[in-house]
Each structure stands twice: as structure tokens, then as C-alpha cells.
Amino acid sequence: MGVLLAGSLALTACGASSSSGSTEGGAYKPGGNVTMTVPFGAGGGSDLSGRAIAAGLEKITGVNISTENKEGGSGAVGYAAFLAKAGKADQLLATETAMLALPLTQDVPFTYEDFTPIMKLGDDFTLLTVSPDSPYETCTDVVNAAKDGRVVAAVSGATSLDQIVFSLIEKETGVEFDRVPYESGNEVVAGLLGGQVDVISVNPGEVLGQLEAGTLKPLCAIAENRYEFDSLKDIPTAAEQGIDVAFAQFRGFIAPGNITDEEKQFWIDAAKEFEQTDEYAAYIEDNLMQANAVYGDDFKEYLTGNAEDLAKVLGE
């Protein structure tokens, strides 16, 4: 299923770590302040994620964790700077699907295997959505219409989540959508409501108000399971309608490569405590995400599969 990105992830000790910290019986704790890098600008989803994680970990560990936005190159600048932090366990980064998409689409000096996965907080899936007066009632209706004629879909960029979703549906079902590119999610929704396109794929958190008001009609969730939120629980998954496609933007955090096992375990243990807090639950609920938390090597396994799915769409 796709290609495996090159590189090697160093999760074990390779000599003394370059980050400072106390050790009592082999245990690690940062000896000073910790920095959480956000590879995007302030105010976006990655920024909200990074600040929520930093605040939660700070409360649990008692270590001061500051958040630093390092934007540019669709995330490439922040990830490249983080690559240079190898061996420093007092550095963290709020990560998402861009970490996997960038090496497939740009000449960047890193892959996900250069870093140490700590925690995936959850998944931000999308809804296939149409206007209220659309004749389509299910995602199967959309696919059948694309088999018989022209269905126009909006996308917000060549490496965007909606582009990936429509491409995966095409590969699964053998149909082809006509695409109209837009600059942002807001423009995508406007294009649908203005009649320029027939269908869109959007994160529910972006359009919850329109869904509740009935100005958008959801057909299915491109998700592994139905949402548990009251406002979304009645929306079937694509798989329930015979379309075996699920893809999400994940949210999580990583440490640099070449940290020790003890340093890695310290952050995994803190992350597991964070998952049990009200702050974690509030972050997931406020952003209408699915709380599929995984840690360490399990997070790495998830990234491998996710990268392979992306390679089918974005890779050569």
C-alpha cells in the first residue's frame, strides 16, 4: 500500500543525550524550560493543538513549557528547524498530516522517521457534504452520479485533506470527479452554497453551525467509526454506504530524534496522564475530533500506514 518513506527513527540511547535533565534511578525529567514548536502560524488548528498539549503537559509535569510558532513553507520551516534539535528531549513539536505530506511533495530534509513519535491525540475526519436542495442523499448517490455523468467537487489545495479524500474515493470506486480549486475552507463552503460545485469534503468543526442550521446537508463521514457527538452521531460512515474509505488529519506531538529511551518514556507517561484529564476531553470535544490516542511505537506504526495512504495520492 504505497511506499515507505526513507530514513531511520532513533528511539534508543546513542551515547549521552544533549538535553539537560535530572536522573534518579535512571528516570529523566527536564532540568529547565521546554519548548513546544508549532510549525504553523498563530490561531490555526495546529496552534490550538500545540497550546493545548503544552498546557496539559505543563500541569502534569510541573515543567514550564512555552509555545513557539515557526511558520513557513506549509510547515517545512518548522519541521526543518526541529530536525536540528536531535538529541534534545526538552524540545517538542505539535505535529499533523503535513509531516507526512511534505516529503512527498517538496524537497525537504526530513521524513517522519527522523523524529520520535510520542502521542497522537486524535483524528479530525471529514464529512462529504452537499447543499440542502441537492438530489444526493448518500455518498453512494454521489459516486453513482459520477459514474454516469459529471460531479464537481471543491478542493482547497493540491495537498489538502479534501483533495486526498476525493482522490481516495476515486481510487476505491473507479469514478472521477471534476475539481474546482479554492484558496481556503471558507471559500469551499461558499462555492457549494453558491452553486459552483456539487459536493465538498470538510471537517465538521468548520461547519457545525451550518449543519445545525440546515444550510448544509451531510451525506457521510469519511471516518472509521461514527461520531459520538449528539450533533453528528446520526451521520453514517462511508463504509456503511459501501465506500471503504476513511482518512483523517491527525493531531499529536513528537520529540526530536536520537533521544534516550528514558527521555522518550518520560514524555509518553506524561502524555498518557494528559489523556485522562478534563483538558484533553475538552480539546477533543471543542474541535469535534475522534479521541483515538496512541503512543510511541504504536504512533509510529500509525504514521507508517498513514504515509502509505498519502503516497497513493501524493507520491509519484
Rank of each mutant, 00 (worst) to 15 (best):
G195A: 12
G195R: 12
D198P: 00
D198L: 07
V199I: 12
V199Y: 06
V199H: 07
P204V: 07
E206P: 03
E206H: 10
V207F: 05
L208P: 04
G209Y: 11
E212T: 14
A213W: 07
A213R: 14
L216T: 04
K217G: 04
K217P: 00
C220A: 13
C220H: 02
E224Q: 14
N225Y: 08
R226F: 05
R226G: 13
Y227E: 04
Y227S: 11
Y227R: 06
F229W: 10
D230Y: 01
S231H: 04
S231E: 15
I235E: 13
T237E: 02
A238V: 01
A238G: 04
A238L: 06
A238D: 00
A239E: 01
G242R: 08
I243L: 02
V245N: 02
A246I: 02
A246N: 13
A246K: 00
F247Q: 12
F247T: 10
A248K: 06
A248M: 03
F250H: 15
R251P: 00
R251F: 15
R251D: 09
R251K: 13
G252H: 09
G252F: 08
P256T: 06
G257M: 09
N258C: 14
N258M: 11
I259R: 11
T260G: 13
T260Y: 10
D261N: 12
E262C: 12
E262I: 00
E262H: 11
E262F: 06
E263R: 09
